[in-house]
Design a protein around this nucleic acid. Structure first.
Lengths: 140, 140
DNA sequence: AAGATAAATGAAGCAAAATTGCATTTTTTT
DNA sequence: AAAAAAATGCAATTTTGCTTCATTTATCTT
């Protein structure tokens, strides 16, 4: 298992206590985290530092943004083979309308689509929303 | 051609000058509009009224939200057969990273995906991003 | 192991975006 | 034309995010 410290070094980021803390939260999370979630979990850290941390993690390929239709962008750990400015997170994201959580479905790839001529495609995102397993269970 | 007034009536909304104005902007738009776009186009209307108008239009099935990865949700006219709480906008949205505009690609349907067991799927969104035709042209 | 340097942090202040409650105005219905 | 219901506009507040700058910290070099 790769240590948090090693992950930071591998992505050419300085190892600071704050970054370690943030990264460990991501490692332990079962779902994608919004900036607001992290603020709570970290007990009201300096918000600007948090934003900057998220930004550099994203740029270096440690986390990726999971769009989910809410106005709050969520973040989750990248898969192993992401690098600086070269993400490979071509999986579907699931957004639960009950618990509001967003999950990476790494086993399901986003299908290709062909658009009318003229468009230059760079990236495709897919968000499936509905109810997650836990929430469906609770209803029964 | 259906008049703006008629569209409002059909969706059980009272006909007010403000709503007519907003709806006509949507009819004339070539791409999805963010709340901020509308504020400009309407020359700084009361922002709250605008938000409420968008909300009721969406609820009644006149417009739909086009997620595009920016934090600003965009809105566009629904296709003809949308009704209250019963949208049918299963098309792909395209977000141009140059001009920042978001387009409904009504000719391209979102492919179905199957998720691991346990999820209850309600809706699927697909956002393709890259450069739109106009922006690609400009570069040549 | 200590100092140099480059990067990260935290504080203060600001700007924009969104929400709430309430009083007023307008639309629709009778 | 009046009554009822809905929509609007204002004020105040909250949340979110950005910029600048001084200080602190991690890393690299010797």
């Amino acid at each position: 298992m790769v240590s948090t410290t090693q992950i930071l070094k591998d992505h050419k980021l300085r190892v600071t206590p704050f970054r370690i803390e943030v990264l460990e939260l991501f490692s332990g999370a079962q779902h994608a985290l919004a900036a607001a979630d992290l603020e709570t979990l970290l007990n009201n850290p300096d918000r600007i530092t948090l934003y900057r941390t998220l930004k550099s993690f994203e740029e270096k390929g440690i986390i990726h943004k999971a769009i989910d239709g809410t106005n709050q962008p969520k973040f989750a750990l990248c898969e192993a083979h992401c690098h600086e400015h070269n993400h490979h997170d071509e999986h579907v994201h699931f957004h639960c309308i009950k618990c509001e959580n967003t999950f990476c479905i790494e086993s399901v790839f986003i299908p290709e689509v062909s658009l009318p001529q003229g468009f230059r495609i760079k990236q495709t995102d897919m968000i499936v929303s509905g109810e997650c397993e836990q929430c469906v269970m609770k209803e029964l």
